[in-house]
Design a protein around this nucleic acid. Sequence first.
DNA 1: TCAACTCTTCGTGTATACAATATGGTATTT
DNA 2: AAATACCATATTGTATACACGAAGAGTTGA
Lengths: 224, 224
Amino acid sequence: MSKDRSERIMQDLQQRIISGDLRPGERLDEVSLAKKYDVSRTPIREALLQLSSVGLIELKPRKGAFVSRLSIKTLMEMFELMAELEGLCARLAARRASAKELEELQALHNESREAVEEQDLDSYYGYNERWHEAIYTAARNDFVKEQTIQLRNRLAPYRRAQLGSGRRIEGSFDEHEKILDALKAGDDLGVEVLMREHVIHQGGTFGDFIARLPHEMADLIAMH
Amino acid sequence: MSKDRSERIMQDLQQRIISGDLRPGERLDEVSLAKKYDVSRTPIREALLQLSSVGLIELKPRKGAFVSRLSIKTLMEMFELMAELEGLCARLAARRASAKELEELQALHNESREAVEEQDLDSYYGYNERWHEAIYTAARNDFVKEQTIQLRNRLAPYRRAQLGSGRRIEGSFDEHEKILDALKAGDDLGVEVLMREHVIHQGGTFGDFIARLPHEMADLIAMH
DNA sequence: TCAACTCTTCGTGTATACAATATGGTATTT
DNA sequence: AAATACCATATTGTATACACGAAGAGTTGA
């Protein structure tokens, strides 16, 4: 028995939060989790602590653990940084990507065309994630890649909640194509701007995003 | 007795790591720490877990906790991101800083002049930190500010170790002045570039930085 | 003399027991 | 009847006890 227990539990809970199975605001009871995973409270607590350090849950003293509910202010701030980080990855990738990596990006893009034509949102969501992650990799800065993925994970519950709302899937696909062209051309500054805007537009404009919040996601947001 | 224990211990250990009191590679023994802080191992473990999530220590299974030793590769990657984040803060600050915030920046800069003239490295180090942090604040994105400070903390042991080596203090001061001018002028793109270069040059050029590593900091670096 | 194996010891990983506090309900008082 | 105070219960925070694994020292064999 090495320390897989708390690690495995942490991974599982993280996945359940990212996937939306556990919704923001939901309480995480230690004893229930302990029973569910058939371990003592100790590994549970360790997993919860780690998740809180990453920002996926909040630990309120003497009250317990809750899946993080982000305020609108924090959400906007996180999106602003997300756009910058994605832009950075794209800029670096434009200078550093290998021919093979560019081919992989093109291949992923080609495959995703099918999902667009069939209007398969779930499928496109998957391709989209892999495509963006391929760019993080091509940026050849593993630390930046990790940080970017971590931030994306924290935003995941909210991005998924607004998946099919508003935005047309074709728009995203077209932007990917422009970004890909700029990447191949090695236009680092150009691709940075394109990527920033792509990320910001992902859920429609910021305004649309905020405007839609109160209705569909009211209970996911922290009200201050 | 609420949960201050582990929190306080975490803060204290973090400070000791950042300040260099605990050096990279150093072992953190749970029982010794428990005796030192006069608590049981439980709060100690919780503190260590949190520190590992932030990246300040590494938790090797069945082997214990060690102050993180960063590889040269990771160090360079972190510096690359640090320069970007500082540049981002500067760019945002150029657009969003209030008149009062600009005044505070100028005031801090003026006060630091004294430290420059007296060649007081420790004093200048303090002013430098406060000045940079004032820019994070002026960027008006608390999330970005937090992330930037967190990364700076992780780099702190290494930046401090190379404090007086090589670089002349006047160079930093002059760069601050140019950055301040660009900030006041609202030249967001200009100040971003200036800040990036300033951060990269902080310890001399990257090349100098790396070249000096093996001698003064050999044991702080992870060798792979 | 060197190498390999075993045993001991120390420290981490996990479970459980205990302490303290917050929350909700009930009873009492105004 | 409403409000407040008090108590009971449930849940977190901390301590301790136990189990497992790793590292090192000592011994035995070649």
